[in-house]
Amino acid sequence: MRGGNGKVAYIDTQQTFYPMIICLHSDRIVPIAERFGMDPGAVLDNIIYARPSTSEHQDNLLLGLAAKMSEKPFKLLIVDLVITLFQVDFTGRELAECQQKLAKMLSLLIKIAEESNVAVFMTNQVLADPRGGVSSDPMKLAGRHVLARAATIRLMFGKVRGKQACLQGV
């Protein structure tokens, strides 16, 4: 209904969404679909879900998704925690190798976005920066500059004392 008129692909690297989709099915998606006079089953059919187990598996899933996107209209691709599998796969390895593989995957996401006219939404995490002092931010973006260069818009959410959440454009 005046929306993107396309499918959504959800890449779940931490395998935390699947239990949530069951909850969303009964608690969120169905009531939202019904509120707008839509068929809940059709809405759920427009969500494609994948759980990669390695960074290489994630790359293969993205290549497969790119092929599907040329056949059917997709409007949104979500990669929920983009850095997770790279952190697992490259623990103790050379940082440069991890950054190169991450940059390659991000280039693929950019190519998918441009060729398929799909919005890509990536979540990431921040880590405590042991070098962060009183005057500097004690947090740093996981994946640092490699991820920062790939993003067009970056938003940071955080808890603030006395408030629910804080949104900061970065």
Rank of each mutant, 00 (worst) to 15 (best):
T91L: 15
F86C: 01
V118P: 05
A96R: 07
P31S: 01
Y10T: 03
A128P: 02
C23Q: 15
D39R: 00
Q87S: 14
E97F: 10
I32T: 10
H25V: 08
F36E: 06
F86H: 11
E114K: 14
S53V: 15
R51D: 12
P52E: 10
A9L: 14
F90P: 01
L65N: 01
A96V: 12
A113Y: 05
P19L: 04
I22F: 09
C98A: 12
K68D: 10
P73C: 04
D12E: 00
L77K: 00
A42Y: 15
D27A: 10
P31T: 03
T54G: 00
M38N: 13
S116R: 11
A50H: 10
N117E: 07
A67H: 12
S26Y: 07
Y10P: 06
Q15M: 13
I11T: 01
Q99K: 08
T16I: 15
N124C: 06
M38R: 01
E97S: 13
T91N: 12
I22K: 15
L61S: 07
L108G: 04
M105G: 04
I48H: 15
L62Q: 02
E94I: 12
A50D: 09
S55E: 00
Q125F: 01
M20I: 09
L106M: 00
S70I: 09
L77T: 02
R35P: 13
L81F: 11
L127Y: 15
I112F: 04
L24W: 09
